[in-house]
Amino acid sequence: MTRKKAVVTALCTALLLTAVCFVMLHRPHGDTVVIKQDGKVLYTLDLSKEKDREIVVEYEGRRNVIAIEDGDIYMKQADCPDHVCIHTGKLSGGAPIICLPNRLVIEYADGRNDAAG
């Protein structure tokens, strides 16, 4: 390998790595949402690409209906007594949507903040 070729290779590698890292760090995060039940990921959704629809999830005979509407996601119906998950409203920068009785969690794959207190 000539000296010139080596330098070009080095520069290209560095440039490529920088580009990859830049994309990884600066991709518009917060649009990818995961729906998990009892720790298992059921769905990974990119809300910016999802069409309006409803997802039904069952747990021990009880149902949750999750709605995706205009790029937002929320709990539309739940066969649980407290309805905390419905009261949480649309998923946003704050806390995840949680249905404790049905062990269901909807949260951003890459949260905007470290936590919601």
Binding site: G89, K90, S92, G93, G94, N113, A115, A116, G117
Partner: peptide, 14 residues
């Protein structure tokens, strides 16, 4: 710093 959101009790988000 750690970023911690404070929930908006009237609506979605913080």
């Amino acid at each position: 710093d750690w970023k911690v959101s404070v929930r908006d009790p009237f609506g979605d988000g913080a």
